[in-house]
Design a protein around this nucleic acid. Structure first.
Lengths: 240, 240
DNA sequence: GCACGTTAAATGTTCGACATCTAATGGCCA
DNA sequence: TGGCCATTAGATGTCGAACATTTAACGTGC
């Protein structure tokens, strides 16, 4: 090796809390601690790590806020390994995007644009991979939307479930989490100008999308979702 | 209102730690506490909330793990409000996707697919919105890639910077964070079969993409990135 | 002028006690 | 017999005070 380069031997020393945190996290990610399993009581765990219960609890608190464990007080309570499924990705994105929007660190349209970009492959993949189970669920949602009146408080939720349901039918769980999360994050202003006219048109477009997915026609699905997104954006732009 | 519906007046009572957490978080998100500002010392804060320092510290620990504040020990240290920029979105996604992959809750190809779907609009937008500053940076990266030999340890990093740089040039910070994060998460296996042949071809494709962005030609950019992604996937499939 | 010990102020950790939560237990009473 | 309810036990939650460690700034001596 040249004289100018030097091997790095050292590492930053870790504080007790960090070491406990890392060890438990590693145990969870490696499968050593299985999902749903209960950790030893805090007193016992603290003894094992040879740290105080206070320090141990700070480590557990971090892992809790990262959704790796959940704390349950009371008898038969304890610290349980969370089953970290793909939905936690959506939850984390919702949380962070919400913070960034509140702080003005990102603009609303940046979030909405990314969602729109993801909806296209979402529909295409759904048209290819949808199961009968998916069709049944989507059909049920659209049926509800037909019946819903303009002032129905469930409307935003139905819309979210429709778009999330498509993403889930795509078979890609990362895609599903992102679409669902971004939809959620952009929801607050989605229905500001919901007129009967817009409501009817929206349902009609949903029907077209669902038919394309049912027919397993990705191109028609893409055309339908693009029409829908353009329509929605136009009727939002008038408000925002 | 009908007899079956009932007003909800109550809310779950919050434990002391949760209340402290919510209050500080609200103060940060509302701008009451500005970015970079230092919070009062823990002893003083605990006095204000009328809780013990232990409880206060657990609240601060959660906020720290959510990147809202940072802790600095020592003289002139303290708890500082973090400037939460869009990069923290990427960091959070990297972390969570990494966990999910380790646990087998999502598959590798699901992550890679979403990244590929995002790279197309990323290049299209970059072709439209790139600044001279962006072109300069991307050009510098490609120049490095030309010079890099096959066993250069910087190659994965250069690739990540190229794709992230394009996403940043798109002008959409959410898109940039996602592309960068997903690229990072899929990096470990990106260069398993890097032959001189593949290296040369990759650089050639990068040049084509960059030229399209320079010429502000979205269609050519899309064609170039699609070619690149297909090529990479083919040379990965042989390995994985 | 620079190296280095000292100081001060903050976070980090420890300890032990008590508070609260909650499922299970077991007894009382209709 | 069966259900209601007080008790209990075992876990997390909170408290308070002391001590450890970290780190920038200060001062002192060479």
């Amino acid at each position: 090796m040249s004289a100018s380069s030097s091997k790095t031997i050292g590492r930053a020393v870790l504080r007790p809390r960090e070491q406990v945190e890392e060890r438990i996290k590693a145990a969870i990610l490696s499968g050593e601690l299985k999902s749903g399993e209960m950790l030893p009581p805090e007193t016992e765990l603290a003894r094992q790590f040879n740290v105080s219960r206070t320090t141990l609890r700070e480590a557990l608190r971090v892992l809790t806020s990262q959704r790796l464990i959940s704390k349950v007080p009371g008898a038969r309570g304890g610290n349980f390994v969370q089953s970290v499924d793909h939905e936690s990705l959506g939850a984390v994105v919702i949380e962070t995007v919400g913070n960034l929007l509140a702080l003005g660190s990102i603009r609303f349209d940046e979030v909405a644009d990314v969602r729109r970009h993801l909806e296209v492959p979402s529909v295409r993949l759904a048209a290819r991979n949808r199961t009968d189970r998916d069709l049944e669920e989507l059909g049920s949602i659209v049926a509800h939307q037909r019946r819903a009146s303009i002032d129905d408080p469930d409307i935003p939720d139905l819309d979210r479930r429709f778009h999330s349901g498509i993403a889930r039918a795509s078979g890609n769980r990362v895609l599903a989490s992102f679409v669902s999360a971004l939809h959620h994050a952009t929801e607050p202003v989605h229905y500001l100008d919901l007129s009967p006219e817009v409501g009817r048109e929206t349902v009609k477009q949903h029907v077209r999308i669902l038919r394309a997915i049912t027919d397993q026609d990705p191109d028609e699905g893409e055309a339908a979702i693009v029409e829908h997104l353009v329509y929605l954006q136009k009727h939002l732009a008038a408000v925002v």
